[in-house]
Design a binder for these strands. Structure first.
Length: 297
DNA sequence: AAGACGAAAGTGGTTGA
DNA sequence: TCAACAACTTTCGTCTT
């Protein structure tokens, strides 16, 4: 049995009532011990995190106490350019009021530089692309944090923001085990594949990121659901892939081609039949490559 | 007739001198 | 910087159901 199944079964965090992803309905849930969270292998949605206790740690015995003890303000988030800590001065009073003067002051100082302006743009781009790819908030957060880091290390100046943000999202997806293909990234980005690859390369180098090469397993759940294949076939395809990896049949091969072939074989074995053409269209590799991988498997 | 198969040539990226 | 190289794609004729 594959790694994933093992993880699922032994996962101490997985409670009985969580069986499928509330976001996309996929039943392929992964338990990440390192981060102590359960997330969907299909869309990456974090379903359960046990590290963070969202409830108050204090007890209130009457409403007055509750009001006094409650912390103020929205939770801090990295996806807002000043981490959500700024105070916005409300509008509404006349020119002469003190409020107006404060507003004027805020306008002048709040967005201080073009650097900050471009940071705001970058965050909105990360959000836009992540939405288009149906990526969950935790991945957007991670990409935003990396962008801030890149900014602190002065890696942005002189390069295209679009390239950097796309590459960061691409990297983060892989780190979370919900890999997207370069083609999919390009489709939602405003720059080409070359630019994305270039940015990716230097970001990994200069931010000292650890990105393991993509595993075919990362692609299988999503491709299966796009092909309308059921859970048993998905599981079968994952098994085939893991066996292939153990037999070192995957060395030097493109992971997407392997995933495509594994799905093709698993579908036939499971009594469902999908044309090579269909799989080729969804996965973005040619029928010839699917055939070649099939032969090897 | 549709789909699968596989050979051959072309393409773009990686690697090592 | 350039050539060698492997993986992948494109194209196309043939085989199978």
């Amino acid at each position: 049995m594959g790694k994933m199944k093992e993880k699922e079964n032994n996962c101490p965090l997985k409670t009985e009532e969580i069986t499928k992803c509330p976001e996309c309905g996929s039943k392929c849930l992964i338990c990440d011990y390192g981060k102590a969270e359960i997330y969907c292998a299909d869309c990456g949605m974090v379903i359960d995190e046990k590290i963070v206790d969202l409830g108050p740690e204090w007890r209130a015995f009457d409403p007055g106490q509750a009001a006094a003890k409650a912390r103020t303000g929205a939770p801090m988030t990295y996806r807002i350019h000043d981490k959500g800590l700024s105070t916005v001065i409300s509008s509404g009073s006349g020119r002469s009021s003190g409020e107006y003067k404060l507003q004027k002051w805020q306008r002048r100082t709040h967005i201080v530089s073009t650097t900050e302006r471009s940071f705001i743009f970058a965050l909105s781009e990360i959000d836009r692309m992540a939405s288009a790819l149906k990526l969950p908030v935790n991945i957007r957060e991670a990409a935003s944090i990396l962008y801030r880091e890149a900014m602190d290390k002065r890696l942005i100046r002189g390069r295209s923001i679009e390239g950097i943000t796309t590459a960061l999202l691409y990297i983060t997806c892989r780190q979370y085990g919900v890999s997207r293909t370069l083609e999919e990234m390009r489709d939602v980005s405003r720059v080409g594949e070359k630019e994305i690859s270039r940015a990716r390369k230097f970001l990994i180098r200069d931010l000292d990121l650890k990105v393991s090469p993509a595993s075919p397993v990362d692609y299988i759940p999503r491709f299966c659901s796009e092909l309308g294949l059921n859970d048993s076939i998905r599981q079968k395809a994952i098994e085939i892939t893991i066996k292939a990896e153990e037999a070192e049949l995957t060395n030097g091969r493109g992971p997407i081609g392997i995933a495509a072939a594994a799905i093709y074989i698993a579908a036939i074995a499971g009594g469902v039949w999908r044309k090579q053409r269909e799989i080729s269209k969804i996965t973005g590799v040619t029928e010839v490559t699917i055939r070649n991988r099939c032969r090897e498997l």
